[in-house]
Design a protein around this nucleic acid. Sequence first.
DNA 1: CCTTTCCTTGAATGCTCAGTCAACTTGGCG
DNA 2: CGCCAAGTTGACTGAGCATTCAAGGAAAGG
Lengths: 208, 208
Amino acid sequence: MARTRQRNGRDRHQEILDAAARVITDRGLAETRISDIAERCGVSPGLILYYFDSKDRLLAEALTSANDQFYLRLSREMRRMSSARDQLLRLVELSVPGLLPEFERLDEWALWIEIWVLALRDPELSKEREVLDRRWRQSIADIVRHGRSTGEFPEGDDADDLGVAIGALIDGLAIPVMMNDPACVPERMRDICMDVALKLIGFTPAAA
Amino acid sequence: MARTRQRNGRDRHQEILDAAARVITDRGLAETRISDIAERCGVSPGLILYYFDSKDRLLAEALTSANDQFYLRLSREMRRMSSARDQLLRLVELSVPGLLPEFERLDEWALWIEIWVLALRDPELSKEREVLDRRWRQSIADIVRHGRSTGEFPEGDDADDLGVAIGALIDGLAIPVMMNDPACVPERMRDICMDVALKLIGFTPAAA
DNA sequence: CCTTTCCTTGAATGCTCAGTCAACTTGGCG
DNA sequence: CGCCAAGTTGACTGAGCATTCAAGGAAAGG
């Protein structure tokens, strides 16, 4: 079937993107060679360029693809929970580098930093980043709105502003955590994020 | 005098570091060539390697040197002000990319991102980053302590925790601002930073 | 079967630098 | 005035790597 061919083509495409993301995580974008990606895929270097026009395009696509996958996981988890506070906690936990051992996605965050560096000079990637970031902030704002609609959270500041602030807080804290800064261990990041977020939201624990 | 020679050597050294920082800001670390730095200095490429053992060392040193200069400027300004609230505002303003036209240091922040990327793999730079970051958080914690000592701010959460949180917030917001994200224009960053910081500190404006 | 189309290979090409080096300059010092 | 050391030059080398390409499968369709 032509289907088979195409299916294979798609798989290979994604396979290369995933391999690229891993190599970038391991070696850093700057040290990533086409032959590394090929090796990780178990194919020849030539094939990589058969599927992608250039190394640069491949790398940019790999970065956004990886972050797409994180977002999908995140929103799937959010949908499963009904309590806004639980959602927020889970979002934070998923965001703290190295907190949950279950995902060995040790540093999806490392990919983010690489995106930032590239986006500074690549207008196309810059737009992508903006979209990804909007989605990220909106996930947070949605949790706030959801909590308010159920009465779990009080009314207060604009939910979008809260999304921006809490999102930035998480981003800013993830950096030192990722770098193993002893002043920012994962647990501390989680606690600070939750404390600040709940304080900004105006949530006061009902339990005693 | 031997002094003159040495003085020249020192000047040249710093001159190269400054040139390197500029080139990195313009072209990005990955695209920075030794010959670019030489050109910006008006010297030959060979000379650069006369002063530095390798390109990598030079770049790492240039990054930390630039951030050192930012810190010096910051702490000089802080010392001039007595009101903790003014200090905080000034710190925020100095941190918002592109807010103050006076310093055309358009993107000292761009250098920070490059540091993050490098520090992920370079243990030496990683240590440097940690020191710089500690200093940054401490500047904020010191403002909080100062405000409390004069009674301008109320007692409350641990000042060091506040330094971590507010510092991370600024870092996290600076990223989209630097990338010209329309959702995060400089003024909005300033306002959010001040609002959140003052709220966390527990400061309520006395004026009506 | 035979052919066409899609995959895949790996060697060959060519470019771009980082780093080296031998020669030249300059300014201080005896 | 020469000498020496520090500074400076720019041509050269060599490695590393993205990209190209000609040639070889292998599956689908006739």
